[in-house]
Design a protein around this nucleic acid. Structure first.
Lengths: 197, 197
DNA sequence: CGAGAAAAATGACCGTGGTCAATTATGGAG
DNA sequence: CTCCATAATTGACCACGGTCATTTTTCTCG
């Protein structure tokens, strides 16, 4: 039988605290496993006894932050316009795009790796889809589509807008402005043949 | 003045050939710089004199393959239905989703890093957008939107469908089937209020 | 051809994530 | 309290991408 000793939790907490401190002082990009274990006062091997790899730690830390953003988002009034949606999503998007490292980890783990071990980030994105889908049920947005599918589409566009933001070619434009045209076409009841080039 | 010696091209060709052989024998995932230089008969430092980093080599190799797919795609008849679009895109999508490594590199480099040095993959995705946009000018698809924006949306959905495909949770469904519902909502003139749950 | 400048190649070295056989600490049974 | 199975920890070691001062090759010019 696999009993977990109290010290396990203590060590893990120390590792997470050390990592959190490092990120607060510098960034996710600068995070080094060796620095984490140095601060936590444990050997390197101990880290990997607690986390499958470095990404598992990042998954957990980033997942927690996204979850806090979702708390914020779902605590607000249901947005009724594209602009309100953009307002609501902006803080989360700002975090997702704050570092290339963060965005990369989110991209890789936003889908669940397997049924049994769905990671923190994957879990938050399931939640994200639910929160969005709720907005689209009986909302002022198009009603000819499954709300969950609409929500997945919004997620795709959020990723697209953020990805473009990391290109020097494009990053003069705020993410928000890049996302809007997609959402207008995706969420609005279709306009009838606008005469436009 | 910076003259390029003939042997430069020769060495670079040997490096690329070695890398291509390795990928043919195993995969992009298994590619090791040390093995490339061993087969090419040069020192490790030489590799990095020719390529900024390992990703630059992958960018080039993968970009070339995508370009071949685009040749194929643009040589075909313009697709007139969602299903024809899916048929046309399937080979390219199969390659993009063939290895996690490949998909990751494509994601990271599908946007241009800077104006001066737009990489091979970024270039092919500009081309991809143009090819798609051409389908949407005067096509049977929705006409109330800028064709280039529609094309960018399709790209976002292709990435989304592929990303989901790497989740054990979802990979029982062919990418094609995952992409279809998005494209139907994105490209078709909006239906008027279908009664559907 | 010979000399010297520039281009190319070299390989020892480093940073950092990750492994694993060996060691130590823990807690329950007798 | 002692013993011991096993949980937890350790740190030397490896893999692999990437660097850079030094050496070798090539090209040009007189």
């Amino acid at each position: 039988m696999t009993t977990i000793q109290p010290r396990t939790l203590k060590t893990r907490a120390r590792l997470i605290e050390a990592a959190t401190d490092i990120v607060a002082e510098s960034s996710f990009t600068e995070l080094r496993v060796e620095e984490v274990v140095r601060r936590a006062g444990v050997a390197k091997g101990t880290f990997f006894a607690h986390f499958k790899d470095k990404d598992a730690l990042l998954d957990r830390m980033i997942g927690q932050i996204i979850d806090q953003h979702l708390d914020q988002i779902s605590g607000q009034d249901t947005p009724k316009t594209i602009d309100e949606i953009l307002d609501t999503l902006t803080p989360l998007m700002r975090f997702m795009g704050s570092e290339r490292t963060v965005f990369d980890v989110i991209l890789r783990y936003s889908g669940a790796a397997s049924v049994e071990e769905i990671g923190p980030i994957a879990a938050t994105f399931e939640r994200f889809i639910h929160v969005l889908a709720d907005w689209f049920v009986d909302g002022p947005f198009r009603q000819d589509a499954d709300p969950a599918t609409l929500a997945e589409g919004v997620q795709a566009f959020v990723f697209q807008a953020l990805a473009l933001n990391f290109c020097a070619l494009n990053n003069h434009r705020p993410v928000r402005d890049r996302l809007r045209p997609y959402l207008e076409l995706w969420l609005n009841p279709a306009k009838t043949l606008d005469p436009q080039g």
